[in-house]
Design a protein around this nucleic acid. Structure first.
Lengths: 229, 229
DNA sequence: ACGAATTTGTGATATAGATCATAATTGGAA
DNA sequence: TTCCAATTATGATCTATATCACAAATTCGT
């Protein structure tokens, strides 16, 4: 893997679809306008409200995107690498409209907004890939949003567990990368409700819980709970 | 205004920021791959689940974007022209992931997806404008989403009224373009709760209601309600 | 390894808003 | 106009989940 600070986009093994379509000259340009950084658990990558002139490319780890609401912070989404974050923020008023925080040890490449824009202007295929990626995000956020609104807590929690297993860890057994309180901010529930609902699923034998380790035993049943809300 | 069916993008007075940056040749290309259509109140523009090969550009009127959830249809957003709709849908699997319905008499231009993609590939400034527009959408949807989740019904309804007045109609007095039941789907509440809450605001003298005509009397107070949730 | 701080578990209570039920009003078609 | 369907109003419950309160367990810093 590339070391932080200096990076080499040509040899980077974690390149995005978008970067794949760049030519040699463009890669050189990217390389000289790009810097790596590492973050530990719960380290802030960027902060809502702060000025920025970078787009972040998450290479490894796991990141939460979160935002202050009228009454509390809310986790909008969990981002699994590789993925750009902060594109919307940066193209507009250069103020971050949300925060990003590492949930696991995470490596990030920062790219100057101006560099990013230049690549969009110059390479249509790059622009197209970027648009695809944003659109994907948008659609899955719509889905999540509707689920959050219409399902009740069992369904939302089951959703989240299945998402972590299937999309994030690709394993039925994993370590919950969030506190129950954070998990609550993610599925829009209180800490207490998360605890009770996990307890309920555990008592019903659908999951095993050992500290932060979670094991999905009855995924079909969880899927049914997720469907019914 | 252009007549439906045949359109002329060069002389169209309702062009998007994105189309503004096209050159003569590109405009000609767009013109020959573009068709206009008109919709009346509550006419479906496109339907979730259906195949499509078009992007829609809403020129006049008002459109709701809505999507089936686990328990009911939900209005994701109200779109005021001029604006592209259906970009995310079309770039991916060509299946509409949500529906669009006219709330007022509405004119739309349909552009072939392939044409749209060609313009993105060919003209970096066009791509850039499209990205800006999608990003704007994304950010405002995050805001709306958090407000929907965290505010209670008075706040959500006040939000919606202020949004209609300030963003959609640009007037403190307007005709509600939705039934109370639809309004409920928009602010995530039942028909009954909408009725009661409107009744409450009316009784408190913050708004006037005459049939579907609504008049915002105490906007400052509504803003306060919106803030407090 | 120890105590402090954070995180989790669980009961009792409160409440916003859904649901159910029924009536009043409006609007469109014939 | 008159009738029927759709929309709106409003009261009486019901319920999921927040809140509050405190105890238990785990993690962390020194």
């Amino acid at each position: 893997m590339d070391l932080p600070g200096q990076v080499n986009c040509e040899t980077c093994r974690i390149r995005s679809c978008a970067v794949e379509v760049l030519d040699q000259q463009e890669l050189d340009f990217l390389k000289t306008n790009c810097a790596g950084a590492e973050y530990g658990r719960n380290e802030r990558i960027f902060q809502q409200g702060s000025l920025t002139s970078n787009i972040a490319y998450v290479k490894t780890g796991l990141v939460k995107i979160h935002k202050n609401g009228p009454s509390k912070d809310q986790i909008l989404k969990l981002v699994k690498p590789p993925r750009f974050i902060g594109i919307p923020t940066v193209l507009g008023d250069k103020i971050n409209h949300y925060s990003a925080t590492a949930l696991l040890p995470t490596t990030v490449c920062f790219i100057f907004t101006s560099t990013f824009k230049t690549l969009i202007m110059r390479n249509g295929r790059f622009a197209n890939e970027v648009i695809n990626s944003i659109c994907q995000d948008e659609l899955s956020f719509y889905d999540r949003s509707i689920n959050q609104m219409q399902k009740q807590i069992h369904g939302r929690l089951a959703d989240a567990l299945l998402f972590l297993a299937d999309e994030i860890f690709e394993a039925d057994s994993f370590e919950l990368p969030l506190s129950q309180s954070d998990f609550g901010d993610y599925i829009h529930a209180t800490r207490e409700s998360v605890s009770r609902t996990l307890g309920r699923l555990k008592a019903d034998g659908l999951i095993q819980v050992k500290g932060k380790k979670i094991n999905l035993i009855e995924k079909d049943m969880l899927r049914k709970i997720s469907k019914l809300g």
